[in-house]
Amino acid sequence: MLFWETLGWMLWATVFIGYLFALSAIIGDLFRDRGLSGWWKAVWVVFLIFLPFLTVLVYLIARGQGMAERSSRAAREAEDATASYIRQVAGKTPTEEIAAAEALRDAGSISAQEFEVLKAKALA
């Protein structure tokens, strides 16, 4: 008997944890959706509180496609922001560094030997 009770509790715990994941995804999607007014967001949240399982199912059926699109768009925007930050912090490419050093050499600011050192450093 103890085995079946434990198995039943584990099943319900799994269902509850899955529900919590769905609930957090839905609440995140509600506040990410700019096309939905504040009143509709409040209505969804109230229904999530008073009729939780039914509301989760209805939300996933009614707004699941838009939820996937908003999630994908948010992931793309985060990836683009990360790539932009990395490009900004990384500095110049080796080609740009060599061109800058060449411009300094042509202007007479550095010697040919210093140019070769900078070129080697950029290519390393």
Rank of each mutant, 00 (worst) to 15 (best):
W4C: 12
E5V: 12
E5K: 12
E5H: 10
L7H: 14
M10V: 13
L11H: 14
W12A: 15
A13H: 03
T14Y: 14
T14S: 14
F16W: 09
I17F: 12
Y19C: 09
L20P: 06
A22D: 11
L23T: 07
L23D: 08
S24N: 13
A25T: 11
A25E: 12
A25V: 11
I26H: 01
I27E: 04
I27K: 01
G28N: 13
D29H: 14
L30S: 07
F31G: 04
F31V: 06
F31K: 03
R32F: 01
D33W: 15
R34A: 10
R34V: 07
G35L: 09
G35D: 09
G35C: 02
L36R: 06
S37F: 10
G38V: 11
G38A: 13
G38W: 15
G38N: 15
W39D: 08
V43H: 09
W44H: 08
F47A: 13
F47H: 14
F50Q: 06
L54R: 13
L54H: 12
L54P: 08
L57V: 12
I61A: 07
R63I: 08
Q65A: 14
Q65L: 14
G66S: 03
E69D: 15
E69P: 02
R70I: 07
S71E: 09
S72M: 09
A75G: 08
A78G: 04
A78H: 05
E79D: 11
A81H: 06
R87P: 00
Q88C: 03
Q88R: 15
G91Q: 05
T93M: 11
P94C: 06
I98M: 01
A100M: 14
A100N: 13
E102N: 03
A103K: 15
A103H: 14
A103N: 14
L104D: 07
A107K: 02
A107I: 01
S109R: 04
I110R: 07
S111R: 08
A112P: 03
A112V: 10
A112Y: 06
Q113T: 11
E114V: 00
E114P: 00
V117N: 09
K119C: 01
K119P: 04
K119N: 05
K121T: 06
K121D: 06
A122M: 04
A124Y: 07
